[in-house]
């Protein structure tokens, strides 16, 4: 964990609701692994008071990439950061990271949650593993990261709930095509993660969780989730990635 200042290299809309930001942050990029996230200050004032958490979606040389939907005041402010501006980044954060063991990996992203898996995809491929992405979204407008998957040359399948793009249905519909030899990693809405816990053997399922966070580094205890013993653990510190049988959602 370091408190560093990065330089915005790009901050562009890639779809009507999704932005991609590339930040030069050489002090932290060498330490970032799949599953890590960063806390970014979205304002230089005290309103809003908190940083916002973003999964590191990719690393190229000394810069990191985040993808975010503009959904509230924080992300709206972030979308206003211009090229060349300075941004405060705290990271890398999280001690619970993805599992890289196993030969075949199924990566399931729901909506913008896909951004929590893309770095994992690259790390796995680098290690010579088989990687397949399932990308689910509500409708065509919510499929904003396909070009990244395409450019990186990953195999993938897209599902939309209303059938406006890709296959119609939920990503869970595709699970029967993947036998128990696949390790499953997922990031996305809670409903999707809950469904996966019921459908996939939780001991080979890895979930990257989202939660409201004030600090991101383990001290506010705001982001907790219950573990299998019924005790609250911190998403930001023990997580953000938990094995399916380690948490109750």
């Amino acid at each position: 964990m370091r408190d560093t200042k990065g330089k915005v290299l790009q901050n562009l809309p890639i779809s009507p609701r999704t932005y991609m930001m590339q930040v030069l942050a050489p002090q932290i990029t060498p330490y970032i692994r799949a599953g890590h996230f960063v806390m970014i200050k979205v304002s230089h004032t005290k309103d809003p008071i908190g940083r916002r958490a973003f999964a590191v979606a990719d690393i190229k040389k000394e810069s990191l990439f985040i993808f975010y939907d503009v959904v509230g005041r924080g992300t709206e402010l972030l979308s206003g950061f211009s090229q060349g501006s300075q941004v405060d980044i705290l990271g890398p954060l999280g001690k619970g990271l993805f599992n890289l063991e196993g030969d075949k990996h199924l990566l399931i992203g729901g909506g913008i949650g896909l951004a929590g898996l893309t770095l994992l995809g690259k790390e796995l491929r680098k290690a010579g593993k088989t990687v397949f992405f399932l990308y689910g979204a509500r409708s065509k407008e919510h499929v904003s990261m396909e070009s990244w998957l395409k450019e990186e040359g990953f195999d993938y399948l897209i599902y939309t709930q209303d059938g406006s793009y890709g296959k119609k249905g939920l990503i869970t519909d595709a699970l029967s095509d993947f036998d128990s030899s696949w390790v499953v990693s997922a990031c996305g809405p809670k409903g999707m993660l809950k469904a996966l816990k019921n459908l996939v053997d939780p001991s080979r399922l890895y979930l990257s969780l989202e939660s409201r966070m004030a600090c991101g580094w383990g001290v506010c205890l705001g982001c907790v989730v219950k573990n299998k013993e019924g005790k609250y653990v911190r998403v930001c510190y023990e997580g953000p990635v938990f094995r399916g049988d380690e948490v109750s959602l």
Binding site: D47, I49, S211, R212, A214, C220, G222, V224, V225, Y232
Partner: peptide
């Protein structure tokens, strides 16, 4: 401790 949600942002502050 209490169940989530445990924190909430407010103008220039937060509730916990």
């Amino acid at each position: 401790g209490n169940p989530p949600e445990r924190i909430s942002e407010t103008p220039c502050g937060m509730l916990n």
